[in-house]
Design a binder for these strands. Sequence first.
DNA 1: CCCTCCGCTATTGTATACATAACGCATACA
DNA 2: TGTATGCGTTATGTATACAATAGCGGAGGG
Lengths: 250, 250
Amino acid sequence: MAEREVDRSVSQTVKAQLALRDQILSGALRPGERISELQAVETTGASRTPVRMALVRLEEEGLLEAIPSGGFMVKAFSERDISDSIELRGTLEGLAARFAAERGVSARELEPLKECLAAIDELLRQVPISVDAFSSYVTLNARFHAQLTELSRSPPLIRQIDRASALPFASPSGFVMAQSALPEAQQILIIAQEHHRVVIDAIENREGARAEAVMREHARLAVRNLRLALRNRTHLDLLPALALIKTATD
Amino acid sequence: MAEREVDRSVSQTVKAQLALRDQILSGALRPGERISELQAVETTGASRTPVRMALVRLEEEGLLEAIPSGGFMVKAFSERDISDSIELRGTLEGLAARFAAERGVSARELEPLKECLAAIDELLRQVPISVDAFSSYVTLNARFHAQLTELSRSPPLIRQIDRASALPFASPSGFVMAQSALPEAQQILIIAQEHHRVVIDAIENREGARAEAVMREHARLAVRNLRLALRNRTHLDLLPALALIKTATD
DNA sequence: CCCTCCGCTATTGTATACATAACGCATACA
DNA sequence: TGTATGCGTTATGTATACAATAGCGGAGGG
């Protein structure tokens, strides 16, 4: 066989993992479908060992499921799984906000959060929001959540939140995109921004319970809106993660 | 070289994973120590491929940490990491209890929980509790927590709780054992049992908030007691997981 | 005497060959 | 005609050979 083209800039394992994740999230591999190692070797360009490592990592990430008789299949998610994942992340972020508030955060550390807040305020001034601005919003929102998580200064918690966000529909960007299909999108973003404002205020004033409560409400809002969005399936092709939803609703 | 002795009853990957986990939790491998693949091959009896798969899984489990330049080392935990992990699990179990309460649970499903409760009541009648009884308590308590988690009927949440319990000191059995070193051990077990009783009652009566609150209090109690136990380091060899604590406190 | 550079060694990353188990198909018998 | 059994094919599980890199030690020069 012709010699393999090898990209030496990143490890083969990482390359395979990224490629496979792409295939899953883009819908090229459908939920429930078995992933053939040989096929993965061909599509990713890595050999079987790194492909297998990538498969194990993707299983731990939650995108794949081990088949008892051997091998892996693409995991399928119910609508309930998705809303639970969002609420789960909200709960963890609530704990992170509480930790941040109770343990104290310097003004210096809150600065990046406030910058995000101001930048989002700026974006939301547009009515209706442009496509470009919306895209910036997705980025800024993700950064806000990541920085808030960091403020907990709790490696175990940060780790769990990262894990909970691995499922794309449970990531901050994921459900924002889902909500964008709704007619009330702009109003939703404004409410969400209010949550952001409150959580910063609560952390500044060391009100742990309030900081936690608002993050949980933030997630519950997301869950409600995701449910709405799943009713009008019109623009949902915006959300690639939807490729993971079980076709047969249970 | 002499032919390798192969145990064909379980996969080599699983065998290696169990063996390595044992080595880590028994303290044979110290925190911060690099794990050599070759050495692991010798001690586990598996070859490099399954050993590598096991290492990846243990990393995802949180027992190992990837070294940037390659390979893995045993993760080291601070005291704060440990108490955060317990509080984290308590928060997740709180959510599980809430889900169970809000979504409704049949009397049939609560039966196993009540059996655990009664069995623990029986054990606690002994004053002071015997070593054997304490060992039964550890098992029953772990079962209680596992069954409660199941009642949430939320696969993503169950998965996260399992992950959060992977760290041995964050598992139900782990911190019970740590607490056993305290002079107030018996009193603590009685309070914990009261929590168990309340959460069942709350779930039965569909009081989600109360069910959640008591599980969080349950965890906070554990955190307080673990702190106490770490002060009197006398009997802490009871808790193998302590092998994971950073020697240099930071 | 110390610092730097080169080369060696040890360990990980990758590829592939081999073993084994599962699935499917075909054929034969009831 | 249907079912069961056996064989073949294909996939995964395992082992090992090869490649590349990082870390360490020694030697040489400043």
